[in-house]
Design a protein around this nucleic acid. Structure first.
Lengths: 203, 203
DNA sequence: TATTGAATTAACTAAGTGGTTAAATCATTT
DNA sequence: AAATGATTTAACCACTTAGTTAATTCAATA
């Protein structure tokens, strides 16, 4: 019996959908291509997920969840600001090394249709003020330079995200398309970002 | 006579195309919608630009050119590193305040089809090594902290680009969707980015 | 084994999609 | 005004798209 094509479950469809959606985006993705990749009939997609929109929503929400790493982990017990920042950067870079498609996918589709955001907020549950408050307290304590803590958070995320989201540009212009060198740079970046930030914000 | 609809030129079509393409991206943009926006017939688009692809290429190339600000300007006469970095940041932020659609458009479409890059490189002519060499010399002179100059360039661009490319996210999560506050933050960012970098890299 | 409901499919539809064509109009020059 | 070439249009075409339908197979269970 043809085992590979039997017992096709949601998971197989979602894997295929994720691959196609993240590679081509919502608009350019084709239901037929997703079906082909999943090794099933196109109608079966509509059986499991009523529409392209609903299938996409599911894929996007899963991606979005991953995009908000659980940095609170690094704050559960009282630790110093260095550990918190190092942890934040590490979580992000590790995530993007493993799933390089995430940043561009999120950024592109959020810009394409921002209405989704409110609903996602509710479902995923994000709370940047936790870290913001922690950073603010460290500033008041004289550990960190005084600045808008949101801006510090944003700087950390910017430095982590852009090199991945803009990979083709970065790799081409700054690393002469040497993919191995780019990859090496990205892994090292966990440390270079921290050093860069450390010099700037620690008193 | 209906003056508004006469003498429709390339420029009008390109304006419409830019608006639609940058808002929706290549795949989701519709030739009919571009025609409507330009106030012309759909066939006229194909008269001026043979295909959707060619029309898109034109729009994209113009956008891409703008994306590479002429920072060399700030290096023509011997100036200090602070002026160069300040100028670089200023050019970028000013550009993005005026054309907020640019970063996301470039990033999205470059990721969607990276083959375009090589051709664009040739046409636009970009040379990051000029600034890289200048920064390296300033490091050797003891003005700047020693680091990979490409990484410093990348950090500057990251800090400028991400807040704009990720606007819906940033605005929602960190500024509670207060558009005015976000706009104010972006304008101020010209200075906060510089201060952030200055503390990190100047000895 | 007969029943039943879920899983799966081939074939189809209705609504676009980018692109073409051939004819009409406009503006300029002779 | 006649001729000419650049604009502009309505109507059309071949093809692709997401989504539907009605029939079939599969798996569990009574």
């Amino acid at each position: 019996m043809d085992n590979a094509s039997k017992n096709v479950s949601e998971a197989v469809i979602l894997d295929a959908a994720r691959a196609i959606f993240t590679e081509k985006g919502m608009a350019a993705a084709r239901m037929q291509e997703i079906a082909d990749r999943a090794g099933i009939n196109k109608a079966l997609l509509h059986y499991y997920f009523r529409s392209k929109e609903k299938l996409f929503d599911r894929v996007f929400q899963e991606a979005f969840q991953q995009f908000w790493p659980k940095v609170e982990m690094h704050m559960s017990q009282p630790v110093d600001a260095r550990t918190v920042l190092r942890g934040m950067i590490g979580v992000y870079i590790d995530l993007f090394v493993e799933r390089p498609y995430l940043p561009n996918f999120i950024i592109s589709e959020i810009n394409r249709d921002a209405t989704r955001l409110e609903g996602l907020m509710r479902d995923v549950g994000v709370n940047p003020s936790l870290i913001a408050n922690y950073l603010a307290s460290q500033m008041k304590a004289g550990v960190l330079v005084e600045m808008d803590p949101r801006e510090l958070i944003l700087n950390v995320i910017s430095l982590c995200v852009f090199p991945v989201a803009g990979r083709p540009l970065v790799s081409r212009f700054l690393w002469q398309n040497d993919q191995e060198a780019y990859q090496q740079f990205l892994v090292n970046r966990k440390y270079t970002i921290f050093e860069f930030i450390e010099r700037s914000v620690f008193i």
